[in-house]
Design a protein around this nucleic acid. Structure first.
Lengths: 113, 113
DNA sequence: GGCATATTCAACCATTCGGTTGACGATTTT
DNA sequence: AAAATCGTCAACCGAATGGTTGAATATGCC
């Protein structure tokens, strides 16, 4: 039970993996396409995807020779609930999220892809 | 900016540190008292507290020879906002949180006071 | 069949992590 | 002043993490 939180939080602790999740917000992607923007080997990305899968944050389905990666946002629920307990945050401020997302996307434009 | 998220999420990835945060929900505590329920050295707990402090999740203030640890829930806000973007969670389900908290407290009762 | 593409496996490497122990500095108590 | 308490520091250890490379395994295409 607390192992789930271990897996989710440590999966989220890596900026490459958070970037991958952000990419998957747009659409499902094949492993090769996920890897394309990053300056690291395909094998490294494959490992990151395995970690995200084990944490339940994404699922992977092989169709033909390509493996599709799909965001599984439900896995965040337990972690989110855990965090909500520490202080009463304003309920789901999506404006703030969008600003944050813009910032993070803009930021990754000089380093990652 | 994304370093903040690194620090917060990796701080939360350790069950000992999450347990410490949960203890601090009740009240501010001295380092020795934080360490008491755990089956590990004071030095180890001191390191965990340093990590939580660097992540901004707690603050530490030395008064006399005792160092007080205080929860700083605001540090969770950025991480919480980031997570909220992945799927629309119901706004702050405190019932679910309380159930979760009970479960987590019950689980650590073998080593807790 | 034979070749290209998609993905993982296996072995390796450097670094970080979570823990230990013992010495140490600072403060309070007697 | 001496002794006890609070907490950190430093050095060390084994295991996990994040990356590399090269070979291996599927699958699709000509």
């Amino acid at each position: 039970m607390s192992d789930d939180l271990d897996a989710v939080f440590s999966a989220l602790a890596d900026p490459t993996r958070r970037a991958i999740l952000t990419m998957l917000l747009e659409d499902d992607m094949a492993v090769t396409d996920v890897a394309e923007p990053f300056e690291m080997s395909l094998a490294a990305i494959s490992k990151h995807l395995t970690i995200l899968t084990r944490a339940g944050l994404i699922s992977q389905e092989k169709r033909g020779r390509v493996k599709w990666c799909k965001l599984e946002p439900d896995a965040l629920r337990a972690a989110s609930v855990w965090m909500q307990g520490f202080g009463q945050f304003e309920p789901v401020n999506l404006d703030a999220f969008e600003r944050f997302l813009d910032a993070e996307l803009g930021e990754s434009e000089d380093s990652s892809p």
